[in-house]
Simulated scan of single mutants.
Amino acid sequence: MSLKIQMNSTEAIANKPQLQLGSQCQAVLELEQLLTKLRVYRQPAKGIFDKAVEFAVKLYQFRVFLPPDGIVGPLTWQALDTQSPVNMPVLRFGSSGEAVATVQEVLRLSQHYSGEIDGQFYTLTENAVRAFQKSFGIEADGVVNRETWTALSQIPRGYDPQWFLT
């Protein structure tokens, strides 16, 4: 049953149109309702993808670690449907790169990490991940998986649209 629901949900997402500034259709109305439910959009739903909708989309994309381009394509639809980050890598001791730096930044904001933002997943980062997981009631295994990414997405972060233009 669960697999059937998941397949129907996946099929529904695959059939969603790409939406962007200027789009006008029923799907925009649905998008506005989802963004309202997620508390990133506070305007009356009109079914018109205007600047306010675009900003709310960018804010949500930023929250779930997607590039905030303001275009609602398959990944954004999936993140909206699951209310969680999608396509995020599993990170563990020894991992490195931009995703690790993002985790370190969010852990610093949540006051679980005080080390350097260096994109290196070693002991200090692993211990911070474990402490974060414990504080969210997640198995404290030190591995950043989907459940941990979802919890990380709940930490408020400042979104500056100008930062992404540079």
Score class of each variant (00 low, 15 high):
Gln6Ser: 10
Met7Leu: 13
Met7His: 13
Asn8Trp: 08
Ser9Asn: 08
Thr10Trp: 04
Thr10Gly: 00
Ala12Val: 06
Ile13Phe: 03
Ile13Ala: 01
Ala14Ser: 15
Gln18Cys: 09
Gln18Asn: 07
Gln20Asn: 08
Ser23Met: 04
Cys25Asn: 11
Cys25His: 04
Ala27Lys: 00
Val28Ala: 01
Val28Trp: 00
Leu31Thr: 00
Leu31Glu: 00
Gln33Asp: 03
Gln33Lys: 05
Gln33Pro: 00
Leu35Pro: 00
Thr36Arg: 07
Lys37Val: 10
Lys37Met: 09
Gln43Trp: 05
Gln43Lys: 10
Pro44Cys: 01
Pro44Lys: 04
Gly47Ala: 05
Gly47Phe: 00
Gly47Lys: 01
Asp50Trp: 03
Lys51Asn: 09
Ala52Arg: 08
Val53Glu: 04
Val53Gly: 00
Glu54Gly: 05
Glu54Thr: 12
Glu54Leu: 06
Phe55Tyr: 12
Phe55Trp: 07
Phe55Lys: 08
Phe55Ile: 06
Ala56Leu: 02
Ala56Ser: 11
Lys58Cys: 10
Tyr60Thr: 01
Phe62Thr: 01
Arg63Val: 09
Phe65Cys: 02
Leu66Glu: 00
Val72Arg: 07
Leu75Thr: 09
Trp77Val: 04
Ala79Lys: 03
Asp81Met: 15
Thr82Cys: 09
Pro85Ser: 11
Asn87Val: 11
Asn87Pro: 01
Pro89Asn: 07
Arg92Met: 15
Arg92Glu: 15
Phe93Val: 06
Gly94Phe: 12
Ser95Asn: 11
Ser95Tyr: 14
Ser96Trp: 13
Ser96Val: 14
Val100Ala: 08
Thr102Cys: 10
Val106Tyr: 02
Leu109Gly: 13
Ser110Ala: 15
His112Gln: 15
His112Ala: 10
Tyr113Val: 07
Tyr113His: 06
Ser114His: 12
Ser114Glu: 14
Ile117Met: 09
Asp118Pro: 02
Gly119Glu: 09
Thr125Gly: 03
Ala128Asp: 02
Ala128Trp: 02
Arg130Leu: 06
Ala131Asn: 15
Phe132Lys: 04
Gln133Ser: 09
Ser135Gly: 11
Phe136Cys: 13
Phe136Pro: 00
Ile138Trp: 05
Ile138Pro: 03
Gly142Leu: 05
Asn145Ala: 14
Asn145Lys: 14
Glu147Ala: 12
Trp149Cys: 02
Thr150Gly: 03
Thr150Trp: 05
Ala151Arg: 12
Leu152Met: 09
Ser153Gly: 05
Gln154Gly: 14
Gln154Phe: 10
Pro156Asp: 13
Arg157Tyr: 06
Tyr159Cys: 02
Pro161Leu: 15
Gln162Lys: 08
Trp163Phe: 14
Leu165Gly: 12
